[in-house]
């Protein structure tokens, strides 16, 4: 099995390999409260690849313990909204 990438994840032209790298090397992860119709919505922030400091924001609809594949539905270079969101949760 593998996650499903829907069309909205490609809007900003982020290669899928970079999206996977950002999740695998995430420096920030959050479950967004009350946003999922089913399962949970996860935010991952991490570097696009090893040769860059450029960070990506990735949004995933995850369905743990159901056997249902997760859905990656947003990927772009980290923007101001999630930068501020991360700052709000930094110690």
């Amino acid at each position: 099995m593998a996650p499903k990438w829907v069309g909205s994840s490609g809007r900003h032209g982020i290669p899928r390999a970079d999206q996977i790298h950002a999740i695998l090397n995430a420096t920030f992860e959050a479950e967004l409260e009350g946003e999922a119709q089913e399962g949970r919505i996860m935010l991952f922030i991490g570097p696009a690849h090893e040769q860059t400091d450029r960070e990506l924001e990735i949004l995933v609809n995850d369905f743990p313990a159901t056997g249902k594949e997760a859905v990656v539905f947003h990927a772009m270079t980290l923007g101001p909204k999630f930068k501020r969101f991360r700052e709000d949760y930094q110690p």
Partner: peptide, 16 residues
Amino acid sequence: LEAAAVQLGSDAAASG
């Protein structure tokens, strides 16, 4: 947006 749970640094990477 509100977070129900947050992981930082190496914990976030482990979770990812």
